[in-house]
């Protein structure tokens, strides 16, 4: 009897906490999204789809969706493209390559709040590093974080700076799995380096690219810390990404119903993306060496 129970006892602690803090909350969010509640009032009446209707009719939601999509569409290809090119150089083994790899990787394990604070200074108007450098070239001061056309680009830059080391490390592992003979054979045929990069490296590293694509898109849709610290979603909503909007509705306005409805929408969006991409990957990626 006890023998049969053994595996259940081993998985129980993990499963209980996963249930309590991951799965039950999904159902709870769904339930709350159909109710009106401000966290204080004694009852929470059922209001049907009203929270969803209000959300979908609000400019804030569409603005957030647009800003977040823009962030993802601009930052993900930038990250992956740069990372692949750099990884292609850093894949060889030598002391200086290892040092450079370490330097590039460091930000990805560093506190995001610290990085956001440091870059708030870097891009600050009067005493910031960037404007100081521009100043030495005789250029005027730019209001990086106060200009609605620039603020999102600053966030993209900071996010890329922080995450690229991770992408590089993953790409290096992917590149190391490509058999050397392919390059040797191509070299014998007189292949140029750029040609080899396009015809051998890029297709063979495709599984890694898809992996990073999934992770970084899902990540991009959940960016919050740099927004909260650097811009609070401003100026004029220019960086008001989805999770920031969720935080504002749920924990500043304490509109639990509408916040939950937004959480459910975000959930559907991201799980949908994940499923869609696993379909695409299932079809397209058969390059395992």
């Amino acid at each position: 009897m006890l023998r049969k129970l053994t595996p259940y006892l081993f998985v129980a602690p993990l499963m209980i906490f996963i249930a309590l803090f991951t799965y039950i909350p999904i159902l709870a969010s769904l339930n709350l999204s159909f109710r009106e509640w401000n966290f204080l009032s004694p009852d929470m009446p059922f209001v049907g789809f009203r929270n969803y209707e209000q959300l979908l009719a609000s400019r804030d939601l569409w603005n957030s969706l647009w800003v977040t999509t823009l962030f993802a569409v601009l930052s993900v290809p930038l990250r992956l493209g740069l990372a692949l090119v750099i990884a292609n150089y850093l894949v060889r083994e030598s002391m200086h390559v290892r040092l450079l790899r370490g330097a590039l990787f460091l930000p990805s394990v560093t506190s995001t709040v610290s990085i956001a604070v440091v870059f708030s200074w870097v891009f600050s108007t009067d005493y910031g590093m960037v404007n100081a450098i521009l100043g030495t070239f005789g250029l005027g001061k730019v209001q990086w974080l106060q200009n609605p056309h620039l603020a999102l680009w600053v966030l993209i830059f900071v996010n890329t700076w922080k995450q690229i080391g991770y992408d590089i490390v993953i790409y290096i592992a992917g590149l190391q799995a490509i058999p050397r003979e392919l390059y040797d054979a191509a070299a014998v045929d007189g292949g140029k380096r750029l040609h080899m990069f396009r015809r051998i490296t890029m297709p063979l590293v495709m599984p890694t690219t898809y992996f990073l694509l999934i992770i970084s898109v899902i990540e991009a849709f959940q960016v919050f810390t740099i927004v909260n610290v650097m811009t609070k979603g401003g100026p004029a909503g220019a960086t008001d990404m989805l999770v920031n909007l969720l935080y504002e509705i749920g924990f500043v306005l304490f509109d639990i119903g509408r916040g939950s409805a937004l959480a459910v929408l975000l959930f559907i969006l991201l799980v949908g993306l994940a499923i869609l991409k696993s379909r695409i990957i299932g079809r397209k990626v058969h390059y395992e060496a």
């Binding site: 993990l14 499963m15 996963i18 803090f21 991951t22 039950i24 909350p25 999904i26 709870a28 969010s29 709350l32 966290f39 899902i218 849709f221 959940q222 919050f224 999770v243 969720l246 935080y247 749920g250 924990f251 639990i256 916040g259 939950s260 959480a263 459910v264 975000l266 959930f267 991201l270 799980v271 994940a274």
Partner: peptide, 18 residues
Amino acid sequence: TVATLMIPSHISLIPNYL
């Protein structure tokens, strides 16, 4: 257990708070 990797953690923010 594996599916939790795909679930955005922010959906549980409000319920966990409550």
